[in-house]
Design a protein around this nucleic acid. Structure first.
Lengths: 205, 205, 205, 205
DNA sequence: AATGAATGAGGCTTCATTCAT
DNA sequence: AATGAATGAAGCCTCATTCAT
């Protein structure tokens, strides 16, 4: 009786627990790598008992998946949003704005980027990464079909090429300890690549 | 004479063991993923005792490293060789030849490609992959300085961009179960990207 | 009330586990020697899983150390207590009482005596044995300085000699399968040795 | 034919091998302790193949036994010889000479002393140590019966006491890193103990 | 819902020993 | 006699997971 009054509503408690666990998982991965990422270790870091972890995650892999999915979802929203925001601009500006926005998104959480890209076992997170790529590609394909009818027939291929290229260059720019170009130069190169492939003028000269 | 026929000399036996183990390691990784990659599992797959594995590899990680290193070394040779082989060609042909050669190299051993790219723990093999990238970038940088003096000052950046892009597109083309372009189309796009970035005519039109 | 009957509280459970493990460790050592003293063997003998052992002991050596330390501590208390209890007696009685008390202490747990003296790897338990000797020597040195001022200047040496001698004779008396003297005769000899070294009359004749 | 001439006679070769192995075993024990004492390690240290070791020792334990036995035999000879050499002397001199000779013997090979006393698993070498004690006790008992008829009836007990005491004190004097008495003082105490127990004047006063 | 003691399969590695040469 | 590659049982220990409370 009395004790039931002291408690937080169920939802809130669960949410708190899940968050503590997920945060701890991130922290452990970031600080000690995937080798130290044991359920016991995470539970300890979360100040929670190992058993509790299994009330919210059926599996160790489920926890990993949530981590990846969370990151992918936010990244996905960021990137898609950025693209949509600039969809009206004219070509040269568009490319530059889009490139900048993409880089912003990738730079937003370098810690998780490193975790998802380097720490998590690749095979298990291809699915999550694929979802991200697919979504962005769809947006881009649509855009290309509408605004660059000239490239319509190869819109699919172009989207695939552009998304993979932009992803690779931005991710590596953030992860590499000492990339051989500045942020601005990277944007320039991204624009150049896109413009070249699209057959539009990259830089207003 | 006669005795040499009874058994292989010592060297050959060791080589045979190492090969059996490395082959088994590859097979286990390919068939069951890194999670099943235990020393006992590998030894069993090699038809060898667990102890024998440790006569040739100090560590489980040493075995992984050999796997990665082997692949990286061959890939490295293939790619660098391919670039050097076409270094005299004129621009449009050069790009097309180089792109084709690169794709050939990447396609040569899809099994190991998948293993190195998706199965092995990222953090542990960044070093190996970096070595590969670095080597190819050096070749490319040199080439650009000599043959494209116009781009000399940004040769470093260009090489970084081109290597990462070409790597990403070819690797993904091979690994993705259903890429949205054909081999020829990929080559076309690679040429287009490179030409665009380099400011040379990509396709003779 | 009712719930407390169902199970022991947490503390008691842990204590029970530790005790089961330590008892099993003793049993294994006594029955099968240090060679059979493996963590798995001990766990099995304790009716406990190998993992449980590591919830209470960080190491195999920690278990060994606890065993040695337990015995040394009790022995230490017994012997020091015995000496202090007789510190007021007059010389001849004192020696006899002390010798008897010492022998009592050594005889108290012949099983552990055998384990600590013969089964445990010497090098690893010298520290524990040393602590015991040191403590007894300190008591004895103090006693000698106060009650045998004549020997004050060589109190250190005498204590070293007497402690080592008494230890050796009592321990060997207990451990040797067929010692050539009776318990009473051993006490007599201990008194004789001590009296001789101290320069006091040993047996009132 | 020709090759048989190049060879050393069989005996000599075996002896050389056995010696190399035993020496290596000693070295390994002295330098790295019993934990590092593996047959492979010893073979390597001896510059010999693991297989060869098994041509001369059926077992790992056999090697350990030889080590212990060798030491015990020499020690045995030394001590017994020393006692016999002084058997004619008169009491006070005798005790002093014997004590000195015993100490000489124990000090002769401190490395092996440490190995036998602290490194080797106790239980396995009790036999060897017992043999040593028994032999010395026999000599001493005989001496006591002949020269100290007064103590004849307790000669057995006395020999047991004296041998164990002298052994303990001398061994510990050599092994302890910082014993609280000098060599001369130890001899004095040994004489005092013996004299006290025997009921003879220890120091000519 | 939360706990945390307990589990036990299994991972990595060592090492005494064998045996074909 | 000597070799040394090969063995494989077994040792220590971890960790994902369960379950009684």
């Amino acid at each position: 009786m009395t004790s039931s009054l002291r408690r937080e509503p169920r939802q809130a408690r669960s949410r708190a627990m899940v968050e503590r666990i997920v945060d701890a998982a991130r922290a452990v991965l970031a600080a000690e790598g995937y080798d130290a990422f044991s359920t016991n270790r995470v539970a300890a870091a979360a100040g929670v008992s190992p058993g509790s972890l299994y009330q919210y995650f059926p599996d160790k892999t489920a926890l990993v998946d949530v981590l990846a999915r969370q990151w992918v979802d936010r990244m996905s929203d960021d990137v898609a949003g950025a693209l949509l925001a600039h969809v009206d601009a004219e070509a040269p500006d568009l490319l530059r704005s889009a490139a900048t926005a993409l880089l912003d998104a990738v730079e937003r959480d370098p810690l998780m980027l490193r975790i998802v890209w380097l720490e998590l076992p690749g095979a298990r997170n291809v699915a999550a990464r694929d979802a991200l790529e697919r979504r962005v590609r769809d947006v881009l394909t649509t855009y290309l079909r509408l605004r660059h009818p000239a490239t319509a027939e190869r819109a699919d291929r172009l989207a695939w090429v552009l998304v993979l290229t932009a992803q690779q260059l931005t991710v590596r720019f953030v992860l590499d300890p000492d990339p051989p170009l500045t942020r601005e130069q990277l944007v320039d190169e991204l624009v150049a690549v896109s413009a070249g492939v699209l057959g539009v003028p990259g830089v207003p000269d």
